[in-house]
Design a protein around this nucleic acid. Sequence first.
DNA 1: GCCGTTTTCGGCCCGACTGTTTTCAGTCG
Length: 571
Amino acid sequence: MPRPNDEVAALLREQAELIAIVGGDAFKARVYEKAARSVAGYQADVSTLDIKGLRQIPNVGASIAEKILERFQEGRIAELEALRERVPAGVRRLMQIPTLGPKRAMMLYQDLDIASVEQLSTAIGDGRLRGVRGFGPKTEQNLLAGIELLRTAGQRLLASAALELAEELIASLRPLAARIAYAGSLRRMRETVGDIDILVAAEDSAPVMGAFAQHPVVGSVIARGETKTSIRTATGTQVDLRVVPEQAWGAAMVYFTGSKEHNVRIREIAVRKKLKLSEYGLFDVDSGELLAAQTEEEVYGRLGLPWIPPTLREDRGEVEAALRGELPELVAERDLRGDLHTHTDLTDGVATLAEMLDAAAARGYGYYAVTDHAPNLYMQRMSDQKMLAQREQLRALADSYPKMAVLHGTELNIDPEGEVDWPPEFLAGFDVCVASVHSHFTQDEAAMTRRLVRACENPYVNIIGHPTARMIGRRPPVEADLDEFFRAAAGTGTALEINAYPDRRDLSDEHVLRAKRFGVKFAIDSDSHAVGHLDVMRYGIGTAQRGWLEAADVINTWPLRELRAFLRKGR
DNA sequence: GCCGTTTTCGGCCCGACTGTTTTCAGTCG
């Protein structure tokens, strides 16, 4: 996805929020939001479009097209600047606290002069919210819990944002480096990262260090030395650049990829063999002789280990498995034959059915399921007629994709009792049914467990979508007896989703590890709402690998015949 | 501010939950 689109989308989203905060027309705010989503999901680079081209984008009319043009011609949008004058940035940030929306954020600012999350936290502690209209004791508790959630996860960056930044920096520095790559938790594909580590091999470190320190994303240079430069971006992300000699590349990659715990384990193995492992290489303790450093394979090899994939390097048993020669053959993106959870503009997607199918076919998929929302997610205004009309349209388009089977599915809503939207006779018409929790997240554990188990027991439900409904940094996972849930999924032939969306990653890697022990099968899905979202699969693969999955565990790596047999669910 | 097989004005994503109220505003999906 072209970056200018993301930037414009962020500006439009900001304008939408600011309109809502200052109490502007709610419909107007909504249009800006919709336009932001359309721009983010639009194929063409908006910075290359003229007024006419911009107006082709859904939900972009004369006014918003002008503003986008203004952004690229003037470097700013005057109306947005004027709104920013009225609302401090911290007030907007207050809205990131779950349960705090635009109205009460503005009230806090106007009545109590609270303009940051920190100030709100202090104000609650001082009892300054007592007696303020709309803020009772329960609200105070909820706000404090929300602030805590922000504080713990909010400091970290989603892997998607980190990867984008890392790839941009690497692209610009590559001409100055013999070798360059990112390491750290990003290479291990954790959900979030605290900072970004970039490793460079170069004879002379000065040119690459200089270029790095002067890169446009740099807000401030924290430290600058011979082998390491640290910067902070304007948005607060720390990036460390380390330069090593090319002959030490492998040892440095091992060292800087971590995790710390993994490194401790392999260093112990080295010590037992009278070796010493550092970022400069693997050495014989007695003679000081360098034994291996050039590649990771060599380093692991001299320790008596096979190369261990970065996504496993968490000291969760990978060293022992490697010693036994029992490392899993991890599922990889190239193993995926299709995507089983995607949306179109029939509900909340921004691309048409044909656009999504084209993009899926271009990825070389052997099958692809369209699973728009079902009627009980009321805001989507789904109906039997609309769903059947889509099926007809889809069957008609299927001939255009001789190499890709086009499956018609839906994403059902699991209601508090575990029931879903349609009766069996209607569900029977779908090729695949995803079912997800979209509301009533706070049921107690027993009720939530029963709800999820019942959904698995439904003979038409094939995949439980984003099974814990968590949003990273926004909403905790639902409380349920996961072991019972996983047992039910395995027993009923219901796959559990690894939703690849970067702020979901749901199931998480820990849950995948646990579920696999029950014999659960998984579906790695993009949950795409736009053409560009099909690429988020890499994060789903990251989570699957971190959960030690092999291709056989993942139903959308299977040939179509086998997949279809699984989807029949013994019916 | 956008949109149109209800078309240039008058609608627009609907319903439920939470926590606050004492009949409802705010937030969420």
